[in-house]
Design a protein around this nucleic acid. Structure first.
Lengths: 235, 235
DNA sequence: GCCGCCAATAAGTATGACTTTTATGTCACA
DNA sequence: TGTGACATAAAAGTCATACTTATTGGCGGC
């Protein structure tokens, strides 16, 4: 992994750097940045800085006021559903709390999504679900965490998509960030919990058999397990 | 020179207009906009347009590519958790579907949030909750929809905040948009459902008495009611 | 018919001048 | 001494323009 992303354009680089710095608390809420100072620091034109600031503003990370500058807003105003904000924060210091709140969100949403999936999933989605569950089983032992992660992400993404609800579907990215985050930062057992793996297979079954109540309940068990795991590993 | 623009700033005006147009389907996915054409149309400099485009890009509404232009992205990629996107879409044509998917989201999240609130709420939040519930009772008859709405929004916001979960708390704005949307666009009975009003009072009670299971269950009933109401009024 | 090169195009970046808003300090007046 | 009007300057906002870079689609050569 490189220190900073570069080839994608000045804008992207500055945005990532600044966003990361702000979410990491390097500039605590209330801090004031000035555009031409930033321009000098990053050695780019004010044009680029202004665009970056506009985007940060659209995430409610900062507020830009005349004669004052660009001030960092209090944490509770940040748009924490923006995937970039999530990634920045998962990379930063308060990853534990972040992972916890995201997992609680998952525990609320995914069971309902699974229930809906059981009534809405297309045959193709059912097949996909079963395949990913089997993939999880196949990679659940022997320290093949990366391969397991791919299937895990795919599984949950299919469930959310199959729910037929747009808001749920768009949480696929968030869930992916969470799963990737807990794997890459080792907030996870060395091998996936066998019970969890089994539960995924049974969820796939329940969806295939159009048993909404069971799909919901089983997914709820997965969520409870994930929360418990978090309690143990990131107190 | 620019007498027609509001005091809020050129940027805001252009962003709102363009965002509304795109989410309304005026520029269907795949359409291409060009920055200097937009600059001429809105009678602003390319600088302003570029900043707006950057923000739209950060919402995944559009993608800007060299030598091609600014292309509208497919709907399923939009960041539908951005409050502005929500407001634009609620103002537009597919409000019914939008309201439905948001209400389903609420039905997943709010019960869990209420359960957490029962164990996390501060005395102040309990009091606030009771006050708002009583406010709802007081304004629930006689066509005082606007006053009722204020209490309704405040009530749900307190629950989400009291849950102690950051992701839930940030959904306060979303819920507010939904409640405001269904009131202002008359996707609601003339007077609030008395059963719903009572349920809110009982939720406040349950939270005050730290009864998580009951708070969750009662909130679930509120959600079910809201969904049913939607079925009747926006099929 | 295929491949590679070239030119047209539209976004990206830089710069400098100018405007607008507004926080703050100053001064006169009560 | 306190208060309000007013001037000042600081920083973002806006604009015009020139220049750079990536990309695409077509043209010509093979």
């Amino acid at each position: 992994m490189h220190m900073t992303t570069q080839a994608q354009g000045l804008h992207t680089h500055v945005l990532d750097t600044l966003g990361l710095a702000i979410t990491a608390g390097e500039y605590p809420p209330g801090s004031v940045l000035r555009t031409d100072e930033l321009a000098r620091r990053f050695e780019v034109s004010r044009t680029v800085i202004r665009e970056v600031v506009r985007v940060l503003e659209s995430m409610h990370l900062v507020e830009s006021r005349r004669r004052v500058g660009v001030t960092v807003r209090p944490t509770e105003l940040w748009n924490v559903y923006d995937p970039r904000v999530i990634r920045w924060r998962l990379a930063g210091a308060d990853r534990p709390r972040q992972l916890r709140s995201l997992t609680v969100l998952r525990s609320a949403v995914e069971p309902v999504a699974a229930g809906l999936a059981a009534t809405h999933a297309t045959p193709g989605q059912c097949r996909e679900l079963t395949e990913q569950a089997l993939g999880m089983v196949a990679t659940s032992r022997g320290g093949r965490l990366e391969a397991y992660l791919v299937h895990d992400i795919a599984f949950h993404r299919v469930v959310l998509n199959a729910s037929g609800n747009e808001m749920f579907a768009r949480l696929g990215d968030v869930v992916a960030e969470v799963l990737a985050g807990r794997t890459h930062h080792h907030v996870m057992f060395e091998d996936p919990d066998p019970a969890a793996v089994t539960l995924h297979v049974r969820v796939a079954e329940a969806v295939r058999e159009r048993d909404a109540a069971r799909a919901e309940e089983l997914t709820r068990e997965i969520a409870v397990g994930a929360l418990r795991e978090l309690d143990v590993l990131a107190p």
